[in-house]
Write a protein that binds this DNA or RNA. Structure first.
Length: 889
RNA sequence: GGGAGCAUAGCUCAGCUGGUUCAGAGCAUCUGCCUUACAAGCAGAGGGUCACAGGUUCGAAUCCUGUUGCUCCCACCA
């Protein structure tokens, strides 16, 4: 035979992907069909494919291919995200290697480098997706910084500003001193660390001067108040000391002043319920500029704000001391100095949490700064409603709780970033610091001129900052179709957006449920009055076998492309799907891909078998097998459809897997397989080809490559007759009778095979079978199958037990296999006695149940009925077992 | 600190409104097979007090309470 013994994915994958592209099978334009739309969660433009993408995009491709085969107008829109912080950090690093400093070359030049970088590496991840088989409409590929998408972002900003939802203000933000930008709360990762808690004394005023202070006099003095802090370097920015109003230890000090060491600033001692008297000394030093809680206390008590730490994390001039020293170096130094000067009482080791920047891993500095914000409260309400009333379905729905919690406790969204890579904020400042929001500089000038006619265009300057990346990606489901609808309420929009929006399914990770999914719902509601998608499938996190998140730094993430080369794209896709119910983290192990590869090989070999047959015209005697598989297929597809409907993809795959491997290969093909060298009748052959095609169609969304290859190998086809657009198998009504009959037969065959195995009888040796039954015709009908699969050479119907034969029972029928001499009476007796005991126990429990009046009275009639049947069956079985045991003795 | 969720074979997971067709699947394991589609395979088999303790019920893996262990989210006690 010329067909290779194993399936070789390399030879077919690129070929078919090209073929699909050339024939435009992925592309979609609006028409009269029902649309089925997915927008890709845009990966970072400079990113490379990781396992999370593999899982995510495999799922999307399964959904989109299935929809396409079901006759829907399937459209999967691909694209990338400009990912401002991540990309800018990469470009900065790249420039640094070349010895170039971002600040020196300036914004314009930097952006040139950045675009160059984007052009060079921007396409990589999308090319990798093609290897996976992703059937995206590549003509629709979008980038969040495409000119028209950027314009959409600007229009949106202006719209929200005009509506009063965007505002500018000084707020405490998470400052990343390395990236020198504010980051959102979601981009801060808290980690527990070992820290030191420093106890520091501040002198209290209003106490008579004791003259010259020495170290001893300070330590022994009662005129000091001791605060506890993990951040002594912020002492220089302290503007208050706070105690609990009910704290007896300090009540007498409230209203007095404390003096901050070194800077000798007098600050008020205030009282606030916020203070936990149990922690430290019960006295909090208040540094409004560098701690969010201190900031809030400061606001409440009108404390001064002194920002002692500069943008790069060093001590600022206002600190007066340690200026220019890094905040952590300063912490060490000031501790030494405080000790020396007698201010430091003691140091304790404690565990606390530090915030780290997700992008740069720098320790976040809470810092006051002027930023742009979006008011979230009003937008959150409708966004919550969509999910609450089911217009947007979260899968699995346990995420509803988390979603609700977030939406009910939403805080304003800081959208400005001190970066260059991104959409620059359309706010313009005059020489006095007044600002207007306008789309262009010219427009801004017009607006300024209303107030100040002398202003010229040279006098106004645009805001230096860019917008948070999510401020562009929250528009994604609209902007990929028609960017012009963003920023305009009630815009009609083009044909695309009207046809494809709202999209069908969104597949993404639960981590970004809030800062992406929720915000897309808000934006969709704002501009289209409709949520952007109907179902949100939340995938798990891909972890390694030990449950650790896969990451570059741990080196525990396999290279997806290498995996594809090793196991084939289909194998890897199966591997990804096999173990990942929605929302569950998936402990990835290459062996899943191996299982996928083996499955592909199994299908390949089933094809080799069928294709290798010589066909002779006529009919055979395989009608039973054909009818059975037909009905089994119908039964399976109902189950599979139900699983898909519930988005239980791994279970749907497993159902298909078993249908193919067990039912089709192990049972059906074995039943119809002609003896070696003999031809198969054309009737059986045709039926088998049709089954094969249906199976391939069912498999295609999951394993696109091998199915397309076999689709064409199995018979000659027209150029456009491809499985990718073939009709998805429809459901039929299964024949319950036939299925249960076959179950009996397969159980019988398994029992006989079991006898062979335990008695070490070669499959080549035919066995005689005697049956005690009231239903002879059942076994007569399946005679040829029994002969073939169990190698029964003779069937004899009998009314009495057969002496000296091995006995077993299936349903209510008794079977005897007479092996002549070699029967182990003791073992048989033992086996049957055990079965008898079990059955008697079983019968007793059923009897007890049935004799319980409350059971009979309360249980549903069908339950009682089934219990009665169980009892009858058990009684018959006991009778048979007893007879067999008696016969053995 | 607040909230959510989980705990079922060695591993990963199914078990919907309680009822021995409910104790399951796949992988792994064991035994026997190189049987001309496939050893990436075939045939068969063995694995579980359903975390623990109570309770409700005629009946609990399934419902309730508590305990223990784990995970995630939110808050961020200086």
């Amino acid at each position: 035979m010329s067909i290779a013994k194993t399936y070789n994915p390399r030879e077919v994958e690129d070929k078919w992907y090209q073929y699909w592209l050339e024939n435009k099978f992925f592309s979609s334009t609006p028409d009269e069909r029902e649309p089925y739309t997915i927008v890709i969660p845009p990966p970072n433009v400079t990113g490379v494919l990781h396992m999370g993408h593999m899982l995510n995009n495999t799922i999307q491709d399964v959904l989109i291919r299935r929809a396409r085969m079901q006759g829907k107008n399937a459209c999967w829109v691909p694209g990338t995200d400009h990912a401002s912080i991540a990309t800018e950090a990469k470009v900065v690093a790249m420039l640094k290697e070349k010895g170039i400093d971002k600040k020196e070359i300036g914004r314009e030049k930097f952006l040139e480098y950045a675009w160059e970088w984007k052009e060079k590496y921007g396409g990589i991840i999308l090319e990798q997706l093609k290897k996976l088989g992703a059937s995206c409409d590549w003509d629709r590929t979008r980038f969040t910084m495409d000119a028209d998408l950027s314009e959409a972002v600007i229009d949106t900003f202006i719209h929200l500003h005009n509506k009063g939802l965007v505002y500018r203000g000084v707020r405490m933000v998470n400052w990343d001193p390395q990236g020198k930008t504010a980051v959102s709360d979601e981009e801060v990762i808290y980690k527990e660390v070992n820290s030191k808690l420093y106890y520091v004394r501040y002198k209290v005023t209003g106490i008579p001067d004791l003259g010259v202070e020495t170290k001893d006099s300070i330590l022994n003095s009662q005129d000091y108040i001791t605060v506890a802090t993990t951040r002594p370097e912020t002492i220089l920015g302290d503007t208050g000391v706070c105690v609990h109003p009910e704290d007896e230890r300090y009540k007498h000090l409230i209203g007095k002043k404390a003096i901050i060491p070194y800077v000798n600033r007098e600050v008020p001692i205030i009282a606030d319920e916020y203070i936990d008297p149990e922690f430290g000394t019960g006295c909090l030093k208040v540094t409004p500029a560098h701690d969010i809680n201190d900031y809030n206390i400061g606001l409440k008590h009108n404390l001064e704000v002194i920002d002692t730490i500069a943008d790069d994390g060093t001590m600022a001039p206002v600190a007066q001391f340690y200026v220019g020293m890094d905040r952590f170096a300063c912490r060490k130094q000031i501790a030494i100095d405080l000790e020396r000067d007698g201010f430091l009482v003691k140091v304790e080791e404690i565990k606390n949490k530090n915030g780290y920047s997700e992008r740069t891993n720098a320790i976040i500095e809470p810092k006051l700064s002027m930023q742009w914000f979006v008011k979230m409260e009003a937008m959150a309400e409708p966004a919550l409603n969509y999910v609450e009333n089911g217009d947007v379905r979260l899968i699995p729905d346990k995420f509803k709780n988390t979603y609700r919690h977030w939406m009910e406790n939403v805080k304003d969204w800081c959208i400005s970033r001190q970066l260059w890579w991104g959409q620059q904020i359309p706010a313009w400042y005059d020489d006095k610091g007044n600002y207007v929001v306008a789309k262009t500089k010219e427009e801004a000038l017009e607006r300024f001129k209303i107030q100040n006619s002398k202003l010229s265009i040279e006098d106004i300057k645009q805001d230096e900052d860019v917008l948070d990346t999510w401020f562009s990606s929250w528009l994604w489901p609209m902007s990929v179709f028609d960017p012009s609808v963003c920023g305009k309420v009630g815009a009609k929009g083009n044909a695309d957006v009207n046809y494809y929006y709202p999209t069908s399914d969104l597949v993404t990770a639960p981590e970004i449920l809030f800062f992406w999914v929720a915000r897309m719902i808000m934006a969709g509601h704002e501009f289209r009055g409709e949520a952007p998608f109907k179902n949100v499938y939340l995938t798990g996190i891909v972890r390694d076998k030990q449950g650790r998140k896969m990451s570059k730094s741990l080196g525990n993430s396999p290279d997806p492309i290498e995996l594809i080369e090793k196991y084939g794209a289909d194998g890897v896709r199966v591997g990804m799907l096999l173990s990942s119910p929605a929302g569950n983290d998936l402990l990835f192990d290459e062996s899943y891909c191996e299982q996928g590869r083996n499955f592909a090989n199994k299908i390949w070999n089933a094809f080799r078998l069928v294709k290798g047959w010589e066909v002779k015209t006529g009919t055979g005697n395989n009608q039973m097998a054909i009818n059975w598989f037909d009905t089994r297929f119908n039964e399976a597809i109902i189950e599979i459809e139900e699983l898909y409907k519930q988005y239980r993809l791994s279970e749907a795959l497993m159902a298909i897997y078993k249908l193919v491997w067990d039912d089709f290969c192990a049972w059906y093909l074995e039943m119809i397989k002609p003896p070696y060298g003999e031809a198969i009748d054309s009737e059986t052959y045709e039926a088998s080809i049709q089954f094969f095609e249906k199976i391939l169609a069912l498999l295609h969304p999951i394993m696109p490559f091998i199915t397309e290859e076999l689709w064409h190998e199995i018979k000659p086809r027209e150029a456009k007759d491809c499985i990718i657009i073939a009709k998805y198998p429809s459901t039929g009504i299964p024949n319950k009778n036939l299925l249960s009959e076959f179950e009996t037969i397969s159980e019988l065959i398994t029992q006989i095979r079991n006898i062979r195995n335990t008695k070490q009888i070669s499959p080549k040796q035919g066995l005689p079978l005697a049956i005690k039954t009231t239903n002879d015709s059942l076994y007569v009908n399946y005679l040829s199958i029994l002969k073939k699969l169990a190698n029964i050479e003779d069937i004899l119907f009998t009314q009495s037990a057969k002496d000296g034969a091995l006995t077993f029972i299936v349903n209510a029928d008794e079977f005897f296999v007479d092996l002549g001499e070699n029967i182990d009476k003791a073992a048989e007796l033992d086996r049957m006695t055990k079965e008898l005991e079990y059955t008697i126990g079983f019968m007793k429990s059923v009897k007890a149940k049935l004799s319980n009046e409350r059971f009979v009275a309360n249980a549903k009639p069908e339950v009682v009925e089934s219990e009665r049947k169980k009892l009858a069956d058990a009684e018959t079985k006991i009778g048979m077992l007893k007879a067999s045991i008696a016969a053995l003795n």
